[in-house]
Simulated scan of single mutants.
Amino acid sequence: MIKVLVVDDEPQIARALRINLTAHGYEVRTAADGAGALRAAASAAPDVVVLDLGLPDMDGGEVIAGLRGWTDAPIIVLSGRAASADKIAALDAGADDYVTKPFDVGELLARVRAATRRRGGDAEPAVVTFGETNVDLAARTVHKGNAEVRLTPTEWQLLEVLLRNPGKLVAQRQLLHQVWGPGYDRETNYLRQYMAQLRRKLEADPARPAHLLTEPGMGYRFRP
């Protein structure tokens, strides 16, 4: 049975996650603060950690650093902090994924499944190649031909979401939530602007993209 450690100081959220994860066959432990999370992780050796950043005794970033000192278990941050700087800081500290509150339980369960699949050996490729572009997801670098391509943090986040879902339609709302956070559901102009920038930087013919595709009225798709 896959073990999940849920770390959140909001009892209703921790309870809801415990119920839903248990119903889907996971063994669940919970902790309400950072110290408890580190103790639980040391004793239970979870396969996945779902971690809130706003804990009462220490910042979630410190918990990530503490966990990364001895375990490579996937860490999915579940936080009300929607700013890009918070997401980047958590990912740079060692988190594997970032979900903003309020969240969809079904989406979070899908993230947990994806994290456990990757850890179980069905890993996503570290480098994604399309056309003349090579994206190293681990090193967070992009090259087109022999030249390095500089992406803004927002461009990188948008590209990463699409590359981690090859061939799949990623809805506008999902992209807006994951990249910009809740409250941006209607800001589809952001997506148009940043997708145009990515195409100019990465596509051979930005006017006729072959890989970063628009599904009108629905979302976007990465075609390898």
Rank of each mutant, 00 (worst) to 15 (best):
residue 3 K to P: 04
residue 7 V to D: 00
residue 7 V to E: 04
residue 7 V to M: 01
residue 8 D to M: 04
residue 9 D to L: 09
residue 12 Q to G: 06
residue 14 A to E: 09
residue 14 A to H: 06
residue 19 I to D: 08
residue 20 N to W: 11
residue 25 G to A: 03
residue 26 Y to W: 11
residue 27 E to F: 10
residue 28 V to T: 05
residue 30 T to C: 14
residue 30 T to Q: 08
residue 32 A to D: 14
residue 34 G to N: 02
residue 38 L to H: 05
residue 40 A to G: 03
residue 43 S to C: 12
residue 47 D to S: 00
residue 48 V to T: 05
residue 50 V to G: 07
residue 52 D to Q: 01
residue 53 L to W: 07
residue 54 G to Y: 11
residue 55 L to W: 07
residue 57 D to Y: 01
residue 61 G to D: 04
residue 63 V to D: 07
residue 69 G to N: 10
residue 70 W to N: 11
residue 71 T to V: 12
residue 73 A to S: 15
residue 74 P to G: 12
residue 76 I to C: 01
residue 76 I to P: 02
residue 78 L to R: 04
residue 79 S to I: 06
residue 81 R to P: 04
residue 81 R to G: 05
residue 87 K to E: 04
residue 88 I to H: 04
residue 88 I to P: 08
residue 95 A to F: 00
residue 98 Y to C: 08
residue 99 V to L: 13
residue 100 T to F: 06
residue 102 P to M: 13
residue 103 F to V: 11
residue 105 V to T: 15
residue 105 V to Y: 15
residue 107 E to A: 12
residue 108 L to N: 00
residue 109 L to W: 03
residue 109 L to C: 04
residue 111 R to L: 06
residue 112 V to A: 06
residue 118 R to Y: 08
residue 119 R to D: 01
residue 119 R to P: 00
residue 121 G to V: 09
residue 121 G to N: 00
residue 126 A to I: 07
residue 128 V to E: 03
residue 133 T to Y: 08
residue 133 T to S: 06
residue 135 V to C: 06
residue 136 D to P: 03
residue 138 A to P: 07
residue 140 R to E: 11
residue 149 V to F: 11
residue 152 T to M: 10
residue 156 W to G: 06
residue 157 Q to E: 14
residue 158 L to F: 03
residue 159 L to I: 08
residue 160 E to L: 06
residue 164 R to D: 03
residue 169 L to I: 03
residue 170 V to F: 12
residue 172 Q to H: 09
residue 173 R to K: 12
residue 173 R to G: 10
residue 182 P to A: 00
residue 184 Y to H: 15
residue 187 E to H: 12
residue 189 N to D: 11
residue 194 Y to E: 14
residue 194 Y to M: 11
residue 196 A to R: 15
residue 200 R to S: 09
residue 203 E to R: 12
residue 203 E to C: 14
residue 204 A to V: 10
residue 209 P to R: 09
residue 211 H to V: 10
residue 212 L to K: 13
residue 213 L to C: 09
residue 214 T to G: 09
residue 214 T to D: 14
residue 216 P to I: 07
residue 218 M to E: 13
residue 219 G to D: 01
residue 224 P to N: 02
